[in-house]
Amino acid sequence: MNILSLLISALSQGMIYAPMALGVFIAFRILNTPDLTIDGSFVAGMCVCAVVTITGHPYLALLCGMVTGALAGLVTGLLQTKLRINPILSGILTMTGLYTINFMMLGGQSNLYLQRTVVNSAGAETQVASDTMYKTFRNFLVQLTGNRRLDNNLSVLIITGLIVLAVAVILSVFFFTRPGMAIRATGDNEEMVRSSSINADMSRIQGIMLSNALVAFSGALLCEQQRYADLNFGSGMLVVGLASVIIGQVFFGKRSVTLGIFSAVAGSLIYRLILQAAYKVDMPSYAVKLLSAVIVVIALSIPLVRRKIAEKRAERGEEGEA
């Protein structure tokens, strides 16, 4: 593969994971609540999408994936607000429960390919690949350009990029509407929201649902792109999302919500570029999670390290004067 196609491949993956980064951004940055449901809802999105896509409804599948994520978020939200269970534990509980549900959706297997068995006229069984959004769009592009050797990743990048752009714009607008602002304020000062006669529990639940819907949507997109769903794909997804959000912040800052939304998307793209570069120098694929964890640790420790350095400097400065 040449550099350009590597780049396109990385960016297309970055776009697919961008809604997940947006979900993490909403949970961690806007609601200020660590939500571990994310690992589970990503896989839930994948599984539902796989099952529905196989029945021949690839677009409905994406929608169903998203709704499933929202429902997972609803469960976590209710645990947090109505039963007052610690947010981290609430997420872990939902995630753990989801594992069983995801397993059942995949029919007791750990993965499911987007294909179905067809018996042809001769009575032989053959596997037919299910239609996906990506397949349809690539065919459309091939017809449009007449280029039968069109880079598959390029078509993935284009359609996913358009979707992500739409999602980011809608979200940016949403957070300035009344319910959107109530969600932001709930993450910022929940007591003030209650004092303003807004049901903060409801805003919190809405926020968690939105966040997990986006995460599951990301899982659904990935499922259609790679043409299979895998039960164990979600573990560590949260860290990947967090890494994307933090990387985005490093590059674009966090001055406003809108900027935060677009920098989460950018962070997802940059994160995949970093991974691609790491693969290029022969990093084994199983090292991805360690790399993600290290990125997050480094990024989170930067403010403290900076302060320590400043303190040390001040100390030395004082000694110099004395």
Partner: peptide
């Protein structure tokens, strides 16, 4: 008050008790 929101956003949130239900806060 909500520290990471602007003055007008804070006031708008508090006013949402009585404000006419506009699309943007």
């Amino acid at each position: 008050t909500a520290p990471s929101m602007t003055i007008e956003e804070n006031l708008a949130l508090a006013y949402s008790r009585k404000a006419s239900k506009s699309f943007f806060a």
